[in-house]
Amino acid sequence: MSSAQETILELRQVTKRYQTRGNILGRGKKEVLALNRISLQVRAGEIFGLVGESGSGKTTAGRLIVGLEKPDEGGIFLNGQDIVGLQGKALRRYRRQVQMVFQDPYQSFNPQVSIMDSVGEPLLTQGVAKGVEREQMVLAALKEAGLSPAESYAFRFPHQLSGGQRQRVAIARAMILEPSLLVADEPTSMLDASYSAQIFDLLLGVRGRLGATVLFITHSLASARYLCDRVAVIYRGNLMEIGPAQEVIRNPRHPYTQALLDATPKFGRCEDIPRFNTLLRAERPAADSGVGCGFFRRCGLAQRARCSMEAPEFRAMGEGHLCACHYAEPGPAQADQGGECHLGA
């Protein structure tokens, strides 16, 4: 991917907070920072991976981008146009360009609505096509998604299909308007591994055939490596590292990315596999100031004096490779300490 490509989606300093409900007097309310001043740019035509563990805010990012929720601060721009606060017609127009595939194929279809009507719904609400024309378009979309003969799938209810088939239907539904950006929120986390690969190939096909940009949200570095051109690693609402997928995964600079790589299942004996060992076994007490590095509590490399007091800035580690860590340095990563599988606190 050349860096000369234009930016299709930009997140600028996006912050999203959630309030937990307190008791009747409003006591015990807690604020959860789902996204903390996230900025990133997705280029047209690429598959961009957003990688993080559960609760890291990656799904929130997806929901903000498709306009299901509003950020508390910051702006989201599609082709240079701010989409925060779009309503009514403008929002509907926006949704012709941005569609989403949801994580759980068992929950993302109305059980009372046939596949035909579910997939054809965007055509109807967007006023693109109706009647026979709509049905033909749905059948074509189902075929594109690898469901054939499409006629035999169209007139079924969601519960009559398998998870993998449903996720294909979900992709058909998302792509029927030919959006320029597809947000895929862990589309394979509920599927068997064999099905995952098929879904990945389908997403690659979507990009290749329609030239759509894909924002691929995942917890798995392995699938990000298979699918993505660039990845961003996110931890508890903070961006940690961003760069070309191959580069980030082969040569991770941030201790959190390194810990993620350590956590990826591998074959072989424990001692033989190089590990970074950057993850603390137990969490450290939080930084009092709340201004330090987001990964401070679990980072094996962190120094209290610096990491708990000063948020790290993004620094360039290589060609398009940025990392937010005080102690990251350009150069090859050192993943040679085998042996111990965990580092003590």
Partner: peptide, 11 residues
């Protein structure tokens, strides 16, 4: 989620 899906579809 299917309600979210419908919203994304523009319902």
């Amino acid at each position: 989620p299917f309600i979210d899906a419908a919203r994304v579809a523009g319902a």
